[in-house]
Design a protein around this nucleic acid. Structure first.
Lengths: 338, 338
DNA sequence: CTGTTAGCGCCTTCAG
DNA sequence: CTGAAGGCGCTAACAG
């Protein structure tokens, strides 16, 4: 392994001078800088981050921990986060937790051990509180994305769950639906709670009493949707919902699938809509009406918040950014007036 | 920051003993081990990877560098790679290059600097040769996934491009197509070259002479597909292809999209098929006929190759694993006999 | 502008 | 089974 000592010897300077060149110190004579740089190139020297961060206490490594790498919503967050990080001279470690708190805990542990300067986190549930507290204790800055752990306050960036839910529900109501089922995620998640509340409120404001039989709690990345949907549509005559709101794209797509299996036509017999586009290429399969959250921006701005906090160190009051969604009306809810 | 010295003091042992406990040395008395472990828990001690790897020369960090994090094919590779890595006690850093050799070069640099023990790489083209050589020079083990750089030999795992292409082309021929266009990726990629050759050979074996006008070279994650498709379908009467083979899911989906814009019906007027499923949820949108490469397995087995090489150190001869694909016939190519 | 000294947190090596 | 000494590669903090 080539070290600054090797460079120093070859260039007839002290190791410290080499260090200064690497770190772009301005107090280096142009000529010696050029010489050192040449030797660095010759020997293919790469600085050792471990050694560096041992003294400097910073790695310029940040992490993004997401619950589902196969979901375009989260990969879009990743793209945004990465772009911003690179732009500010940081590198990104991506961790995938599968919505599993144990895996999340493992990851956080390794990230601390690897010495990341900060973490962008989409927590997988209440159980995340304990690892998040560890970050606090070690004063490693972190920012919540999409969801928060209220017990442990920190900067956050998320979609506007209230407005988005309202938008979606009102769209359905405007189409004449009054029996609207809501297949939501696990109630331990902050965004799930917000969506649940917004759903109820919007219905009530429209004079519709929420029907407990229409409120289903499930998971964001796996479940037996055939069963869930079968149960919903088998409600006695006149009770069967005419529309389903799915709390994320994964649930939305699986709902469509289950309805197809049951040979229930969408949107004629059942309207379907959900949060977030299921496809990478948004208009490849323009069928599902969705409320699209600005995932890329969430990653991008979240990373900005994080790095600001890393660099200032000054713990100002926690900031909370909420971004609006865009309703994209397509065929799965039928066209209102046409 | 809590160090082994803090633990040592609290537990009335030497730092060295603490180190031994952390590293599960068997020559530690049960009682002192328990005591040390207790203090570790009390103080929430986390070992400092930087310091550790400074002496031990290993980080138990491996990297996966992929060209497109929004493509399900690659995220499936990532899932497989991560599962295997975790199972063997390694952690994964994920890097996204956007098929951009500069970004790839940057990433490789930072990975070397971060001291990863090995790299799983989907190279973005010939230009990758230079960074890959740096890995060789520093003797950091790496394994190619999906594509290789022939100039720099190393273990590799990929799909069977010949068999897969043949399968797809023969499927089209069996349906009666003889004018088959092939929209392939950039010719600097090894898998693109293999597919190109297999395409020509399969046609020739069937007595069809490849038509240069039908061979299009484009990119795997961006291009003006409307233009490409428009050009293909505007070929003079009798020359217009009746089927399009797309070299990956991204091209496949964009082909469908462009055909829709041009109001050309699939499969009636144009059959379409491609490599790899475009959706996360395979049967959400069961339309495209595809040859599905075992992406998850490629990641999983690739990681296994990599870690074997890291641990043995012994550079045996390079291994090359080739995995078969599965042809999934759906509606975009019409149903053969029904 | 450049060099020297010391130490980051841990582990290897060699003594007990 | 446990401890002491030294060093991994780099950079602060002082000298010059």
């Amino acid at each position: 392994m080539v070290t600054i000592y090797d460079i120093a010897k070859r260039a007839n300077v002290s190791p410290m001078t080499v260090s200064r060149v690497i770190n772009k110190s301005p107090l280096i004579k142009e000529s010696t800088r050029l010489k050192v740089e040449e030797v660095i190139r010759e020997l293919d020297y790469v600085p050792n981050k471990q050694a560096r961060s041992l003294t400097s206490k910073e790695t310029r490594l940040v992490a993004l921990v997401i619950p589902d790498i196969s979901n375009p919503f989260f990969t879009n967050i990743a793209r945004g986060a990465e772009d911003k990080a690179l732009q500010l001279g940081y590198h990104l470690i991506l961790g995938n937790t599968d919505e599993n708190p144990d895996k999340e805990s493992q990851y956080i542990g390794m990230l601390m051990s690897a010495g990341v300067d900060g973490v962008l986190l989409v927590p997988s549930g209440e159980a995340s509180a304990s690892h998040v507290k560890k970050l606090v204790k070690r004063s490693i800055p972190f920012v919540y994305v999409d969801r928060i752990i209220p017990q442990v306050p920190a900067d956050s960036i998320s979609g506007d769950n209230l407005q988005t839910t309202r938008q979606l529900v009102q769209h359905l109501i405007a189409l004449g639906h009054r029996k609207i089922a809501f297949i939501n995620g696990p109630s331990s998640l902050s965004n799930v709670q917000e969506r649940d509340q917004a759903f109820r409120e919007t219905l009530q404001l429209a004079g519709i009493e929420p029907n407990p039989a229409y409120m289903v709690e499930t998971h964001f990345k796996q479940d037996n949707f055939d069963e869930i949907i079968a149960k919903l549509v088998s409600l006695q005559q006149g009770e069967r919902p005419t529309a389903i709101l799915a709390a994320n794209n994964f649930i939305g797509v699986n709902t469509l699938r289950a309805l197809r299996t049951l040979q229930i036509r969408v949107p004629e017999e059942m309207a379907v809509t959900c949060f977030d586009d299921p496809d990478i290429i948004p208009d490849y399969n323009p069928f599902l009406t969705v409320a699209k959250q600005p995932a890329y921006d969430m990653g991008f701005l979240g990373m900005q918040l994080l790095i600001e906090r890393i660099q200032s160190g000054a713990p100002a009051s926690t900031r909370k950014i909420v971004l609006p969604s865009e309703l994209i009306v397509r065929s799965s809810t039928g066209k209102p007036q046409e």
